[in-house]
Computed example of a mutant assay.
Amino acid sequence: MASIAVYSVKGGVGKTTFAVNLAWCAASISRRETLLWDLDASNGSGFLMGIDPKKKRNAESVFDLDRTPRKLIRKTDYPNLHLLPADESIRSLDRQFSRIGKRKRLAKIAAGLRKDYDRIIFDCPPVLNEVSAQVMRVADLVIVPLPPSPLSTRALKQVVEEVKGSGKSHPPILPVMSMIDMRRNLHKDARAANPKWPVIPLASAVEQCAVEQKPVGVFAPRSPAARAFAQLWTAIERKLAKG
């Protein structure tokens, strides 16, 4: 099993859209048994999948010492793809981790899911807190969506510093330029400054994910955005294969 974290230090950069579309690529293109684990209190991944969390059990309950995440995992409409949804209870996890005194609780839960899943995609909180720090300790790769701006390199350095601060070692980081429009000079300059970064274009198909509540590869499989996510997933698989 490999774990991929989609992380950003701020909202509005396409983090959740990345997580959902990459999870779909893992399940549909690579045909991996995939779990999309939403750790953002807004439940954006669940919304984009058309799945609401069950009210009887909240998202933080998966971290209780006597609970199993399997009771919270939901099937999606797509083969090989399951969702562990979030809700507002995620906001109290820092306090819960402190109460149970477990800095490796998430890693232990993820290890228990190895026999069920080939890939876990984490939709991280848009801040570095104890939750995201625990994700960084278990992730094999961190995907960082960055908007096309002269500040992108600076933003990436900030992410690297925060990820490094989560522990003595940290997983490889793959920056991805998101929402790029090559008709704009600013975007061209940002692309020229970072030519090796993968790119997800600014496209109406990506925006429609929230309207359709589906991954872009489902309703617009021939669109440039769908091809870009597929290419990004191929690059991720290659990076994981290299170790």
Rank of each mutant, 00 (worst) to 15 (best):
91 R>V: 11
145 P>S: 08
114 R>V: 01
190 A>V: 15
132 S>Q: 05
93 L>C: 06
158 Q>R: 13
241 A>D: 15
156 L>S: 04
104 K>A: 06
13 V>G: 05
190 A>I: 12
195 P>L: 07
197 W>D: 11
240 L>P: 05
102 K>F: 03
68 T>Q: 10
11 G>D: 07
132 S>G: 00
175 P>F: 13
158 Q>F: 00
103 R>L: 06
219 F>K: 12
10 K>H: 06
230 A>D: 14
213 Q>R: 15
150 P>W: 05
123 D>V: 03
174 L>W: 03
135 V>I: 11
13 V>M: 07
138 V>F: 03
154 R>G: 10
68 T>I: 05
95 R>G: 14
70 R>S: 04
219 F>Y: 15
159 V>I: 05
219 F>I: 01
134 Q>I: 00
12 G>I: 13
182 M>C: 05
187 H>G: 14
105 R>V: 03
176 V>R: 09
154 R>N: 03
26 A>P: 08
240 L>A: 11
93 L>D: 02
206 V>D: 06
147 P>H: 07
43 N>Q: 09
205 A>L: 07
114 R>I: 00
171 P>F: 06
172 P>T: 04
46 G>T: 01
1 M>T: 07
80 N>P: 02
105 R>G: 00
7 Y>T: 01
190 A>S: 15
89 S>Q: 03
12 G>H: 04
85 P>M: 09
208 Q>N: 12
99 R>S: 07
31 R>A: 05
205 A>R: 08
164 K>N: 14
89 S>H: 07
219 F>R: 08
142 V>W: 01
172 P>E: 05
198 P>L: 13
8 S>N: 15
243 G>W: 10
175 P>L: 15
92 S>K: 06
53 P>E: 09
227 R>P: 00
242 K>S: 15
108 K>T: 14
104 K>I: 01
12 G>C: 09
236 I>Q: 04
150 P>H: 08
226 A>Y: 00
101 G>L: 05
237 E>K: 08
166 S>E: 07
87 D>S: 02
237 E>L: 07
96 Q>H: 06
186 L>R: 11
39 L>Q: 02
192 A>Q: 14
71 K>G: 07
166 S>Q: 06
92 S>A: 12
29 I>H: 05
107 A>S: 14
156 L>F: 15
22 L>A: 10
206 V>M: 00
82 H>F: 14
225 A>D: 11
206 V>A: 07
126 P>E: 02
176 V>I: 15
85 P>T: 06
123 D>Y: 06
233 W>R: 01
17 T>E: 08
126 P>D: 03
99 R>W: 03
133 A>R: 12
116 D>F: 09
142 V>C: 02
9 V>E: 12
200 I>R: 01
197 W>H: 09
40 D>E: 08
161 E>Y: 13
127 V>I: 10
116 D>Q: 14
6 V>R: 02
184 R>F: 11
17 T>Y: 00
91 R>I: 04
78 Y>H: 06
35 L>S: 07
113 L>W: 09
218 V>G: 01
122 F>R: 00
98 S>A: 13
135 V>S: 01
240 L>S: 02
141 L>C: 01
82 H>T: 09
124 C>A: 04
30 S>M: 05
224 P>G: 04
23 A>P: 02
22 L>F: 10
190 A>H: 15
47 F>A: 13
201 P>G: 13
207 E>N: 11
203 A>N: 15
152 S>Y: 11
113 L>V: 10
84 L>N: 01
52 D>R: 12
215 P>F: 09
